[in-house]
Design a protein around this nucleic acid. Structure first.
Lengths: 189, 189
DNA sequence: TTCCGCATGTAACCAGTTACATGATTAC
DNA sequence: GTAATCATGTAACTGGTTACATGCGGAA
């Protein structure tokens, strides 16, 4: 039950339409919280009914009308309150880890290949984050306020991606019968 | 839809009761997949109906009867098949990250305190994993087969916990106005 | 006597996913 | 012509959580 709060944070940064929120959940915020547009609209409706957000209908030409949502005072108070409440430790769920654990009940080489595929995927994502960091936060030491906090979350993404990549490398090395003990290239670090 | 498969892996390692499976999901397997006993019983029922597992009722004295589940050939085939299928990239969800991102809309110091709390929690968990590793896998280079795979998953847990701790340290440092620039102790590394 | 471990479940609920639906404009 | 972008939604379903329920035996 935290999509509500992720939306509150997102709207605190900038008033937006459901459509736009959904897109933002594919990008920066989506690093640690994702949502489809359907889910966003549903929750936004509930939040509106609760008085946490309010919509302004904006007519556009050559475009469908849109509802721009913004926080109400109640919403802002709820956000503040939520920030002070303790957060649950989040349950990590990983299909791939379960597959690694079960590798000997199938074909370990196939599992290794799958790990390699995920390794590449995460390497790409890491590169994307690093490029973002360079572009958006060229001078981290000068950051304060919400820009600093945004950067910190990006740092989290970077650190976790690096961890995953390291781990996947370890797994691939252990699962590959290595006729050549040469390691995979490190070009992403 | 992967609790099924986590259970298949768990049962491949050892036939067990639902109760026992649920407990194991709090421990080793639970590192990357958790489940309550209610959920386990429900899924186990479905798997039984599907013919993936079969139960043997064992009467006990001074204890309630129990149903010991084991894989059927169909279940084993399904497990093998699943291991060869590609795994989805798992969506990371973190309340705490959302709070960090939104810190300036509340009290950043309170968020920092919360991060510190999680830091301690993960440090404890890391210690637990490291102790496990020492106890259960004293000589990793000698490992093969499913013991190797179990160790690899434990390694993943260790790597990810370390990453989280590093990140939390970075966040705490950035969020704390640091009259004393002394870092928090490193006793967990 | 009170709590913990063993052992199994049902029922209600909630969050999130997938499929389906509409409709205009703009870029290739 | 065809796909992508903007823009909003409904409906059915699924996976998982929370609350509730039962009952014995042994340890503190």
């Amino acid at each position: 039950m935290a999509l509500e709060h992720a939306i509150l944070v997102s709207l605190a940064e900038r008033a937006s339409t459901g459509y736009d929120l959904a897109r933002r959940f594919d990008k920066s915020i989506g690093q640690f919280w994702t949502a489809t547009h359907q889910q966003v609209y549903k929750v936004l409706g509930r939040m509106d009914a609760n008085g946490w957000v309010a919509a302004t209908v904006v007519a556009q030409d050559a475009r469908p009308d849109k509802k721009v949502y913004d926080l109400t005072d109640t919403g802002r108070a709820e956000l503040q309150d939520w920030l002070a409440r303790p957060a649950e430790r989040e349950a990590t769920r990983s299909d791939l880890a379960v597959k690694i654990r079960g590798a000997s009940y199938g074909d370990p080489a196939a599992v290794a290949a799958e790990v390699r595929r995920h390794r590449a995927d995460h390497a790409g994502r890491l590169e994307f984050y690093l490029a973002n960091e360079k572009r958006e936060f060229p001078d981290p030491s000068a950051l304060t306020g919400h820009r600093l906090h945004q950067w910190l979350v990006l740092r989290g993404g970077i650190t976790l991606e690096r961890g995953l990549i390291d781990w996947y490398d370890e797994v691939v090395a252990a699962l590959t019968p290595s006729s050549t003990p040469a390691r995979t290239s490190e070009e992403d670090r």
